[in-house]
């Protein structure tokens, strides 16, 4: 491995990692506020990819402009799923049940996508910036990676602004810290939960668009995505926004380094082994609070 290879891996990792961080933030936000593990996040990302794909291929709408349609659509999908299924979960098995319910939702979506788009992998590649590159830092970077990084940063920035600088954000953070106490001071935790679920799903439209332009995908790509996203949020500490960000970027960097230094075949597995090692020493994850919530 040469030094320039390493630099390349790190830069690539930061660019791709930011997109994973965005998708993982949606997931960890949902868990933090609602105690819901949304395993449908992976299939929602793919649904977002297919929406962008359909708009771009059939209507000639630029994928980035298309986000103005796909993000609100995914937000609504999130609200409907939350109201129809998630809000019904109660009691001590709530979190465990949420995994199965969202899994069932993801099976239905996966089956529908397979029927509509077939299982042949596709890629969103009819925009000019997808196949052209720019020479930066002594290497060729595809424009789409840079645009994706900018998009993810802008969305993460707005999400942080929403959470840390607005009244709604204050109620979300209060619900993150303690749902009962938040309800006691007059926060409508139910409404906050529904909106958070919507936001958590809306970001997958953007993540899915970038994923779909940088990878060939079909509905079963969602398994690969969800396993990474879950690993990221557990490693970062479930419910921790900063954790999702740091773990998202560092995991993808690590994966890229292993891919150059050793073999792409084993890079996936490093991801999971790192998780197992970290959790053996810090069961609450990197940024998780120790027994913040008793199971």
């Amino acid at each position: 491995m040469t030094f320039s290879n390493l630099v390349h891996a790190v830069i690539d990792g930061v660019l791709t990692g930011s997109v994973y961080a965005l998708m993982a933030t949606g997931l960890t936000l949902i868990f933090g506020v609602m105690d819901i593990i949304n395993v449908a996040q992976g299939v929602f990302v793919i649904l977002g990819s297919y929406l962008s794909y359909a708009l771009s291929v059939h209507f000639g709408i630029d994928p980035f402009v298309g986000l103005l349609i796909t993000m609100p659509t995914m937000f609504l999908v999130g609200i409907v799923v939350e109201r129809a299924f998630i809000a019904r979960l109660k009691g001590p098995e709530k979190t465990a049940m949420s995994i199965l319910v969202t899994y069932a939702v993801s099976l239905v979506i996966e089956g529908a996508l397979n029927m509509i788009f077939s299982t042949n992998p596709v890629q969103i590649n009819n925009a000019s910036y997808v196949n052209s590159s720019v020479h930066l830092f002594g290497m060729w970077l595809p424009f789409i990676y840079i645009y994706g990084f900018i998009l993810a940063s802008v969305l993460l920035g707005s999400l942080y602004f929403l959470l840390y600088r607005t009244r709604f954000g204050a109620s979300v953070r209060a619900s993150l810290a303690d749902q009962t106490a938040a309800a006691l001071v007059g926060i409508d935790v139910k409404k906050v939960s529904t909106i958070c679920f919507g936001i958590g799903i809306a970001v997958t439209a953007a993540g899915g668009m970038i994923y779909g332009t940088t990878n060939a995908f079909n509905a079963s790509s969602s398994y690969d995505l969800i396993s990474r996203l879950l690993t990221i949020i557990v490693l970062g500490g479930m419910g921790s926004l900063a954790g999702a960000l740091v773990a998202g970027v560092s995991m993808i960097i690590l994966e890229d380094i292993v891919a150059v230094a050793w073999s792409p075949v084993w890079s996936n597995i490093t991801f999971f082994i790192l998780l197992v090692i970290v959790l053996s020493f810090r069961p609450q994850g990197l940024f998780g609070k120790q027994s913040a919530r008793v199971a």
Binding site: D35, I37, T95, A96, L230, V234, M238, V276, L279
Partner: peptide, 8 residues
């Protein structure tokens, strides 16, 4: 505990 156990 439970939640994280599932994911691990």
């Amino acid at each position: 505990r439970r939640h994280t156990f599932v994911v691990i």
